[in-house]
Simulated assay, not measured.
Amino acid sequence: MSRKGVAPFLITLGLLIFLVSWSGCSKLNVNYLKGNYHFNRANHHFTEGLYRKAIEEYELALQFNPNLVDAYRFLGESYKQIYKPGVDTEDNKQRAEKALAALQKAYEIDPNNKDVIYSLGDMYDKLGNFEEAEKLYLKILEMEPTNMANYYVVAEFYKRYAGEKEELKEKAEQMYLRRIELDPENPQGYAYLSQYYESLQPAPDFDKAFDAHDKRTLLEPDNAAAWLSKGVNRWSKAYRLQNQLSRQERLELAKVSEECLKKANELDPQYPEPYSWLSVLYKSVLAKVIPERAKRYEQEADMYAEKFKEARQRQAERKKLEEELKGIK
């Protein structure tokens, strides 16, 4: 081919390549836009709790853009929402399989996405696959070792299985303690730790919980709710272990409970709950431990019960007024 003939050929070839390339890019752009359109529609359905409609739209979004990691994640979350743990039907099994497949795909695309890791771990958790769930939750801790919220997630996970595996009680406790080590001056860490000890089955560890409550009140001595929790802890031990404790032990616990509940009341006289628990304490413990003063304690219990009702009424009225003022604004 002569030089004169080559030039037109190259020009024509270049034009063809440009047109093909432009056509391909255009198609990609259109698919990208369609994928985003269906993804946004799916998100709207998801936030409205319309999970089956969300599933349809997420699947359409992935047809147009198969690299949308969040579409896989929320497709899995949508199937997870309509999955019912423990229901052994074919439809329910398929929902579980589809949820797991979508979340595994999201994890494959973006293995360092904390939200994806958590979603997949949660699905394994719902399926009772402890080992796979644990791997993923621990990976989150490795990725973000200074994020205190992650320790609560793992601690709660261990706590759910502690009834089946005794050694997990210690693992859960260690997670709460590691959270406290990260920020020992934060009272919330001690609040969560005390709740953990008090929720242990078959028997709560009241004294470890009380130690945690004690540290919390040292950090926030003006918090009425902290003193309330501390008082309820001592009442719980005196009442629930009444057949195991001596009369003197129960009396000592009741006195500490009374002091804490009255401290909560002193800090916030408008707080209804201390009145309620004082009433319970006087009737269920002190009136029984000191029978010669039973009539007096029962009268005081009735008085505190009445004060509780009055405080709750005032609380309801304040709330109503606040809502009315918001409506005016």
Results as ranks from 00 to 15, higher is better:
residue 28 L to Q: 12
residue 244 Q to D: 15
residue 89 T to N: 12
residue 49 G to K: 01
residue 1 M to C: 08
residue 188 Q to V: 09
residue 49 G to S: 02
residue 35 G to T: 02
residue 23 S to A: 06
residue 17 I to W: 10
residue 187 P to C: 01
residue 136 L to S: 15
residue 299 Q to L: 13
residue 120 L to N: 00
residue 215 K to P: 13
residue 141 L to C: 10
residue 304 Y to W: 11
residue 78 S to C: 09
residue 54 A to E: 07
residue 148 M to H: 06
residue 7 A to H: 10
residue 53 K to W: 02
residue 170 E to W: 02
residue 196 Y to E: 03
residue 122 D to V: 02
residue 283 K to L: 08
residue 191 A to W: 06
residue 266 E to C: 05
residue 317 E to S: 11
residue 286 L to D: 05
residue 260 C to D: 10
residue 186 N to L: 09
residue 88 D to I: 11
residue 11 I to C: 06
residue 69 V to Y: 03
residue 75 L to F: 11
residue 315 Q to F: 06
residue 240 R to S: 14
residue 120 L to T: 00
residue 85 P to A: 13
residue 57 E to C: 06
residue 260 C to E: 03
residue 269 P to F: 00
residue 249 E to Q: 15
residue 307 K to V: 01
residue 313 Q to I: 05
residue 128 G to H: 07
residue 91 D to Q: 14
residue 281 L to E: 04
residue 220 E to R: 09
residue 187 P to W: 04
residue 141 L to A: 08
residue 294 A to V: 01
residue 79 Y to T: 09
residue 228 L to A: 00
residue 129 N to I: 09
residue 268 D to W: 01
residue 103 L to C: 02
residue 53 K to A: 11
residue 312 R to G: 03
residue 265 N to Q: 14
residue 221 P to G: 10
residue 13 L to P: 00
residue 207 D to P: 05
residue 45 H to S: 10
residue 82 I to L: 06
residue 310 E to G: 03
residue 79 Y to L: 07
residue 168 L to W: 14
residue 85 P to Q: 13
residue 135 K to P: 15
residue 259 E to V: 05
residue 232 V to R: 04
